[in-house]
């Protein structure tokens, strides 16, 4: 590790880190917002569930580099536009979370749903005040996976020349120089851990009602 080099590149690294955070977090939030209604739909309809989950599975199969390259065709963007990355990661996040949201709603005990209905909750009230809150632990588990894999996926975009922490890898490769590579890997892992931790905290804050068991 060349500490001096890191010191000189500090501003650049912060800039790359900032982009990395944006490219990771924006798709995560967008993906969740889109997956919530879709997952609810899949949960409501026995016919829609296999369809949505199937399509999500297919989308998930497309390798990220390929998706980054193909999206400009659909969106009409330039190949270097970070928007492609945001769109691609949003697609992955939705693909992962549709099933998670549907399963989360499915995991709410039938008795609880029936009780809400019997007390005169309208279906949207039951969804917002009972089913979603009770499904939070399952949704946050899925969100954790999406967040951590997004961090790694973003760095692939460096191969196309879109700046974020992955740029440190390509730079290191071209210069045959380990310092930026190791710094990039460390920052990615730390970022993933911080996002993961934040979601855990958020989950804890939203679910004071769960039995405190030692979670893995």
């Amino acid at each position: 590790m060349n500490i001096e080099w890191l010191g000189r590149q500090f501003d650049t690294i912060v800039f790359l880190l900032g982009w990395h955070v944006l490219l990771t977090v924006i798709p995560l939030i967008l993906g969740l917002l889109i997956a919530l209604p879709l997952g609810w739909w899949a949960h409501r309809s026995r016919r829609i569930y296999p369809l949505l989950v199937g399509v999500a599975g297919l989308l998930y199969t497309v390798p990220s580099l390929a998706l980054f390259v193909l999206l400009p065709l659909v969106l009409g963007t330039k190949i270097l536009d970070p928007l492609n990355i945001v769109a691609a990661l949003t697609i992955y996040t939705v693909a992962l979370l549709v099933r998670v949201v549907a399963d989360a709603l499915e995991s709410v005990p039938e008795d609880t749903v029936q009780a809400a209905k019997a007390m005169g909750y309208r279906s949207w009230q039951s969804l917002l005040k009972v089913e979603l809150p009770v499904g939070v632990p399952v949704i946050s588990a899925g969100l954790r996976v999406a967040a951590v894999s997004n961090v790694s996926l973003v760095s692939v975009a460096a191969l196309l020349g879109i700046p974020q922490l992955g740029s440190l890898f390509t730079q290191g490769f071209q210069l045959r120089f380990f310092t930026p590579i190791i710094a990039g890997i460390l920052l990615c892992v730390i970022l993933a851990m911080i996002l993961d931790g934040l979601i855990i905290l958020l989950n804890r804050w939203l679910t004071p009602w769960t039995p405190k068991v030692v979670a893995s």
Partner: peptide, 20 residues
Amino acid sequence: ALLRRRIGYVIQHAGLFPHR
């Protein structure tokens, strides 16, 4: 929904809201 709000309903396993 309004009809149900006039009627109390108790079921076998209580069906309490786990999050409240």
